[in-house]
Design a protein around this nucleic acid. Structure first.
Lengths: 216, 216
DNA sequence: CGGTCATGTGACCGGGTGGTCATGGGCGTG
DNA sequence: CACGCCCATGACCACCCGGTCACATGACCG
């Protein structure tokens, strides 16, 4: 958690620090990311960083949290718009589409998301997972629960299992698109909207297979 | 590439160094992995490491290469055994199954594979990708090409695209199983063989959808 | 004005890093 | 024996890291 000093800072200064940290962590990851570089790039003394955050890990966790908040905000229309009039899987595909669009136009957020998901150190993963996961869960759980009510998902569907599955696999899917050598075959980026939608549906289908009602 | 000195070393000493390096890189990744720790754990002076390899990156690339060779060797029966008598996708599922078994019983190799796939730094990724990717490609390409001949894959299937897709997604799938919170829903480990096979097929199907002949 | 408090700053610290190299031991050969 | 070669070794190097802290700045207030 940031210190109280951080919350009292001018928004401009906060944004400078945040952007510098997103850039550094997003391109080099947590362990290789350097506070010296962040301070220099933000035009701020290194000591100041420690007046804003308890330490490197605290800063990284904050960056990850803010990033997931931004991503979540960008997808809010899709999350809120689920009223049962469209099928659940179709709606989820729309959300994934919005996600891809967001990453395509927001490289900083994409980098941080990648760094978060690629992190090996369990201690770091855990420090970051709680805030980030809570944000995504808060957004997705209502959707899944409503889908159970409307019958788009099986009555006895294990919602927790579904959510954790989506939480771990979807980011990789959304990020894989930007992995050299993979952009082509997956065809989720730069395609005609209808083609892309079809491809998303094809990848999403089997993930949901266990949770939708059986039979035709 | 290792130096000529390395090739002249006693197999016991080579194995000690290799195991120590696999352990360290596999648990901490490339950038956080420490040569000091590797040397200590292998019972070897740090200077010796530099007599065997050009530097840290060279050692890591070697470790990644040896690891993929071991994985490849473990799957050789499945790769070689494809004679067209079984359907391609079924055979591929068998190979994936063998892969999961191997990772389950070989944590060192699983760690290195994870570290390789989770690496963010493009320079490191590139240094490692060439040897590793070549090994996997050499194993898989004949399979795919034979499948095109037998008609299990479309005549005009883009084999390169299929291979790169498998190369990037399958490792993540094989590793995700050991990610806390995901073991359950994916159900690819510790399951009854038939259940597991069905789940593998369900995940593999859509990946191949674009490459198999159309229509019933 | 002096005093207090919040904030900014960068020199500095201990420690770990990848990498180097002078030293010396072991061994085959002339 | 003495020579040369291969190799093992760990002290050592320059560098960078995350983190600390004594001090400067300046706004607010009695």
């Amino acid at each position: 958690m940031p210190t109280s000093t951080w919350t009292r800072l001018s928004p401009a200064r906060r944004e400078r620090v945040l952007v510098a940290a997103m850039d550094e962590f997003g391109t080099h990851g947590y362990s290789t990311g350097s506070l010296n570089v962040i301070a220099r790039e933000a035009g701020v003394a290194k000591g100041s960083l420690f007046q804003y955050f308890e330490g490197k890990l605290d800063l990284f966790a904050y960056v990850a949290e803010q990033t997931s908040l931004r991503v979540h905000a960008a997808m809010r229309p899709w999350l809120d718009g689920y009223d049962g009039s469209t099928e659940f899987s179709r709606h989820l595909a729309g959300a994934l589409e919005a996600w891809l669009d967001y990453f395509a136009s927001h490289p900083l957020e994409r980098g941080v998301t990648a760094a978060t998901n690629m992190e090996l150190d369990p201690a770091v993963r855990n420090a970051v997972r709680v805030p980030v996961q809570d944000i995504y869960l808060a957004g997705l759980r209502p959707l899944a629960e409503r889908a159970v009510e409307t019958g788009d998902l099986r009555e006895d569907a294990d919602v927790d299992a579904l959510l954790s599955l989506l939480l771990v696999l979807l980011p990789h899917l959304a990020l894989a698109v930007h992995t050299p050598g993979l952009e082509g075959p997956v065809r989720l980026v730069g395609e005609h909207p209808e083609v892309r939608r079809a491809n998303i549906a094809r990848l999403l289908g089997p993930l949901l297979a266990d949770f939708v009602p059986k039979g035709p």
